[in-house]
Amino acid sequence: MKKSSNFGAKLTISLISIMLLTPIVATLAYSLSTSWVKTILPTGLTFHWYVVLTSSPSFLPAVLRSFGVGVATVIVSMVIFLPVIFYINVYEPKLKAKMRFLTIIPFTIPGIVLVTGLVQLYANLPIPKIVVLILTLTAINLPSFYQSLNNVFMGRDFRAMFEQAQLLGESPVGAFMHVILPNIRSGVLVGMLLTFTGAFSEYVVTNIFLGGEFETLKIYMYRLMSVNGNAGSVLTIIYFGFLMIISFLLIKTVHGKKIDQRKE
């Protein structure tokens, strides 16, 4: 009986995976086609559109802008959120129940709703919009950052480790960097990767709040959709490849963590 239901499980998950992957496979085929208009198969295969896209003067700046936004968001998250998550978990677990409330905020106040308030509040203030954008993206990505780190403080007495390091002459920051951080490495790495991906991929707030003048990868992708479908499909595939690399790193990190725990 167990065997047959495992077959059912494999069939179900295969069908769901095939459904989710079909448009991506179609996009990959399209990005490699010379032209595909009134034929069953494309008329020929080519890397022409990959060359066209990557040699376009808009491509690299758009990638770099998104990359910069991603890195800045990760840095702000690490500086502002990491100490808070550590403090709450180790010193005031009572506050954890309140932090859980933050995780439903993206659903009750999604980007498109938040951005109206941001426009109204900051449109005429002399604060650089890019700074407001980075801070907003940090807050939007807080739930995934928080969840990646929420479970790493269980199982060990981090409070004692932290305090003993300080008795031995470390400053609080030094104790955190030298004693705590190495022990929560994999959780921090997962949090950083998810936050980076979230900020790198953001579209709604970036586009509406900055008025589209700051062309990130997603904004460039949207422009290409109407201008050059073939080059746009290449960018979609490159973006998918980027997500696959991030997934690979996440799987490696999570799996590595499991092995670490087994060794102890």
Partner: peptide, 11 residues
């Protein structure tokens, strides 16, 4: 978002 919509339009 955009990549998903785009790949569905291609299909």
């Amino acid at each position: 978002g955009i990549p998903l919509a785009f790949s569905l339009i291609i299909l």
